[in-house]
Simulated scan of single mutants.
Amino acid sequence: MKHTKFQISIRSVWALMLALGMMTTISQAWAAGFPDKPVTLVVGSTPGSAPDTIARIVANRMSESLGQPVVVENRPGAAGSIGASSVARAEPDGYTLMMMTAVHSISPSVRDDLTYSFADDFQAVGMVASVPLLFVVNNDLGTKDMAAFIERAKQGDIFYSTPGIGTIQHLATEDFAKSAGIKMTIVPYKGGGAATKAVIANEVQLFFAGIPPALPHVKNGALTALGISTPKRSAAAPDVPTFQELGFEGYDVDNWHALYVPAGTPADVIGKLSKALNDAIALPDTAEKFLSVGASPNPNTPEIQDAFGISEIARWKNVIETNQIELGK
């Protein structure tokens, strides 16, 4: 019997639909048994760092929800790109997670040696926490509020510390300087602790710091905090105004932390991980523990986080190009 091309085409379509339906059924059945072994959560920084601390808090709670251990594995180096590169190459089965931070959305614009694409090689599970930056200045400046600091900065000779070129602290400071109509000179240090001590010693006049290294010095009077970078005040420093409160409309710098998996991970598996994550960060004691690193829970969905991550890549690229920031690549 002779078949027409139309009949063959119809049969091909039905065969494809049947195959896809079987694949979906298999995927759902496989996801129903997920996880049946420990899950690894990779952190691209050293033990004791903010990402590591946040990851361990969340991992413990996710383990309870998933019924399997979530084991934190530190793979530090190259601003988190060593860990990210290993996760990008992992099997997309939900058993390998990555704690991404804002630096991963900056890296595509500041590093030429990346072996992965944040945009193409990862899918989001969801946001974990917001981690604002604290704008601290040396007391010898005699500036007790932001308006006084800006007036002083317009006179010149203001130096600021960062934990490196191309870090979120570096870019946040340059973005602020443009908004304020001032110019300052960068002095890179090795790490946030050293950058904070440099302000106390008056080697530099300011630092856009992570809360943990700076807040104790604010509380004991060694430093003055003039502003915080996120739209909401931090529970760790409730008396410090936001930049939006200070008149910098739309200024929002969040050193966010979020969970990602390799691209191609089944949607049902991502859904399970997302639920476990959001259940974990909804617990009251999670918020209390986050405070130790100046973080606050910030749950969302995989779809929202995927879109946010992509927007952050474009946002930081624009900051670098608009401000003509020298990166020494």
Rank of each mutant, 00 (worst) to 15 (best):
298 N>M: 05
182 I>P: 00
40 T>S: 14
285 D>N: 02
22 M>S: 11
224 T>V: 12
277 L>A: 10
32 A>Q: 10
14 W>K: 13
140 D>G: 14
219 K>S: 11
44 G>L: 04
116 Y>M: 05
298 N>C: 00
21 G>Q: 13
31 A>C: 04
320 I>Q: 10
222 A>V: 00
47 P>H: 04
314 A>W: 03
112 D>N: 15
248 F>P: 02
127 M>C: 04
227 G>N: 09
10 I>F: 09
295 A>D: 04
30 W>Q: 15
308 F>D: 10
282 A>T: 03
174 E>H: 14
97 L>Q: 06
214 A>I: 05
315 R>G: 06
94 G>Y: 01
91 E>W: 08
102 A>T: 11
152 R>M: 11
174 E>M: 14
310 I>P: 00
117 S>K: 02
279 D>L: 07
190 K>M: 06
304 I>T: 14
50 A>C: 04
250 G>L: 12
154 K>L: 05
80 G>R: 09
4 T>C: 15
36 D>P: 03
127 M>K: 09
50 A>T: 13
98 M>V: 00
214 A>P: 06
245 E>S: 11
319 V>S: 03
95 Y>R: 11
284 P>Q: 01
279 D>R: 02
40 T>F: 07
290 F>G: 01
24 T>M: 10
279 D>I: 01
152 R>I: 09
171 L>T: 07
22 M>T: 12
229 S>V: 03
10 I>G: 03
312 E>S: 07
113 D>H: 15
96 T>K: 01
232 K>M: 11
123 Q>P: 00
142 G>Q: 13
46 T>K: 04
191 G>C: 12
320 I>F: 12
214 A>L: 07
175 D>W: 06
129 A>P: 01
214 A>D: 07
8 I>S: 13
11 R>I: 15
